[in-house]
Amino acid sequence: MSSAPAGLSAPVHAPGLLAALADLPDPRARRGVRHALCTVVGAAVCAVVAGCRSYTAIGEWVADLPADTAQMLGIDPRRRPSEAMLRRLLQGLDADRLTAVIAAWLATRIPATGARRAIAVDGKSVRGSRTAGSAARHVLAACDQATGAVLASTDVDGKTNEITRFQPLLDQIDNLTGVVVTADALHCQREHVAYLAQRGAHWILTVKGNQPHLHAHLTALPWRAVPDAERTSDRGHGRREIRSLKILSISTGIDFPHAAQAIQVRRRRRRLDQPKRFTTETVYAITDLRVHQATPAHLANWARGHWSIENKVHWVRDVTYDEDRSQIRTGTGPQVMAALRNAAISALRLTGVTNTAAANRHHARDSHRPLALLGIT
């Protein structure tokens, strides 16, 4: 039997996914229902853990299950869910409710470390869902920075934008007391910081041109006289990046509620095949955290952790699961499939997996492995 990929280990002891999915409302009429909703959705998550990218692939995975594995999922081996039934059911699910149920289950599996928790809020368009008459579906998510687990997600339809969905997204997370929420420049809004203060959360917000007055104040601060609080160098994705971080207290002079410190992050990048060509980017941020509440190393880790969500979740969905070329467009299908991918990626991340593609292949070789990962035994 092949060994597990690096980082794969037994999941944290917690209730299994099928038990959590029992709270999911079933959109089907009762008459003629042969398979429990939790069984069908649980099987779909298992299939995505094994690398399935489409309804057809999920249906084939279910059809090929050994009888004993099917029974563990609650499937009668003689009357398995068809691909057409899987498709209809997944297209009719309440995507936000599905995400909330899965996120609540994932939260029970995140180990307590004693460190201050950080959550990154970031959005992603599902480009393949675009049609001639409608824009691509957009999903806003909140991710645990340490693990990459998706804790909440909500659809951003064409009639609204990420700003109006910020509070409903974080309302899905029960306790934000003491948590640091990081977000990009779009969410540098007074209403957002007032909401986070009510929830007892702290924040680090990027500042760009959408807040021109605030951005001008930050760029005018005496950064040349400030020494680097932290300097790091990394290699990855064919490039080298040098990051330097400076911090200034701003108790007065900045017209933004609760802002206590300003942060300047300077990133110098070069491609490894072009060693003499550097590009430099300077980004500013503000935080309500005071000097005694967070060290420069903490602030640097949280700022870097926000950008890493792109690699931990969005990049995996695009590259490993080929999400942007998915042709799923009907009903809530795009959001539901995004939720299933997030569930699979998060469950794998919580076991220490860093190579999702290798983990998909590992779980595809033995149908019992996805069930064990998701606590279905």
Rank of each mutant, 00 (worst) to 15 (best):
I110E: 01
I110P: 00
A112F: 01
T113C: 04
G114Y: 02
A115T: 13
A115Q: 15
A115M: 09
R116S: 05
R117P: 04
R117N: 05
R117W: 03
A118F: 03
I119P: 08
A120I: 07
D122Y: 07
K124Q: 10
V126C: 10
V126L: 15
G128W: 02
G128Q: 02
S129C: 06
S129F: 09
S129I: 03
R130N: 00
T131Y: 04
A132M: 03
A132E: 13
R137S: 14
H138W: 08
L140F: 00
A141R: 09
A141P: 00
D144M: 04
A146T: 08
A146C: 03
G148S: 03
G148C: 09
G148D: 10
A149C: 10
A149F: 10
L151H: 10
A152K: 07
T154S: 11
T154G: 13
D155L: 15
D157E: 13
D157V: 08
D157C: 10
K159R: 15
K159V: 14
K159G: 15
K159A: 15
T160W: 05
N161D: 15
N161E: 12
N161Y: 11
R165K: 13
R165V: 00
R165P: 01
R165Q: 15
P168N: 03
L169T: 05
L169V: 05
L170H: 05
Q172H: 12
Q172K: 13
I173P: 02
